[in-house]
Design a protein around this nucleic acid. Sequence first.
RNA 1: GUGGGUGUAGCUCAGUGGUAGAGUCCUGGAUUGUGAUUCCAGUUGUCGCGGGUUCAAAUCCCGUCACCCACCCCA
Length: 428
Amino acid sequence: MPESYSRVGGMRDLLPTEASHMTLVEETFKSTLASYGYDEIRLPTMEWTVLFQRGVGEDTDAVGKEMYTFEDSSGESISLRPEGTASCVRAAISNTMLRGDRPRLWYTGNMFRHEQPQKGRYREFMQVGAEVFGYTGPDIDVELIQICEDVWRKLGISDRIDLQINTLGNLESRLAFRNALVDFLVPLKGTLDPDSVRRLDTNPLRILDSKSEETQNLLQNAPRLTDYLDEPSTKYFEELRRILSEAGVSYSVKERMVRGLDYYSHAVFEWHSDDLGAQSQVGGGGRYDGLVERLGGSACPASGFAVGIDRIALVRDAAGKSADHRSCDVYVISLDSSGDTYVNKISRILREQADLRVRKHHGGGRVKNRFRDADRSGALWALVVGEEEMAAQTITLKPLRTDEPQITIATEAMIDFFNDKLKKDLAN
RNA sequence: GUGGGUGUAGCUCAGUGGUAGAGUCCUGGAUUGUGAUUCCAGUUGUCGCGGGUUCAAAUCCCGUCACCCACCCCA
């Protein structure tokens, strides 16, 4: 340990301005998910390592080489969660939530991946996600997409985020395609990039979204997944697109899109933005009908999404919409200590009856410094009580953000005053 | 894991071998019942850390750490 304490590598301190921005994004998701009738679930920050190995897949980067893994005192391997879906599925199974019910759940929390940090990519980052269980049709997939589209609109970033969708078909279709793809690629093994050669064995579908230009050229003549979709899979995707269009959601189909985590089937979708440095993805999801069974539950279709809260905040930053943080709405100053009791009472009333953030001055000091502190707090108003006000049962209100003159009003009229005027100011 | 960049005042940065700097912020005063704005005055510091070269190092050399950006991959 160095002389002075520093952060653990890659961990961040989110200072009040950033923190309140994160909270804004989080709250928007929270209220939107609630408006669709989804229930919150809180999940542990760590799980047995095997859950992620089994649920996410050991050949994914997130699990294979980026997990924070250590042993607990019993010698069992534990990992900090690199994503939320596996935990959510585990929780749904182990709390018997899937017996006779079809839960629609959402969660939020910090995720951990030991990668090299850069813009939009952090070792600890915030995600919000939703998972729905027991629904087979594309209608619920579209609802998941719509929830996020609603959030983009509320946050004012719809025009900066693009939706891309694709289908992976059902298991049979995908296996048939996978075989055809491998047959096509094996003879070309010598010309593929090293990563793709490795994936030929582990996860050939992932070769499709390889970033290697040469590999992409080779793929020009590769078999196409759409040619291998069976009747039900084709219908599923057509239906999905129809409902999406009906809902007025614009999207593009990316035939080569395969999700990084390898439990998906049928619908897969991703949202992208240009505002993230070298990163582009703000979120994604899809259907994962086989995962519940894979993790020990009875077969149960499921679908979900995950969105990076940090990345949404970055998109808002780029749009010039980052929340300007104010600590409080009203800063209360008593000019001499004999007024403290009176001022405490006023502050409490304002907090309880006018739904205001009220910061009271503490620590004495000169009058001019009290007003200086009022200004720095970001408050819209300074509320001043001195001898004159106490004697007359009034308060003086000084606007700190406009040139309007200060006014003195009867204390008993203060709630009405704030509920009318201040609310209007806050709305702007 | 690999590459590039940056570390100097609380913050943003200038300073390529010879006294440690600017802007901003902060503190005080002009203004003892009024902030922000204006004017005046003042404080900023292990120059990331360790070693080396030199009469002399923020500056050159070696090492090291941290952060940023990018590869890879993803939220």
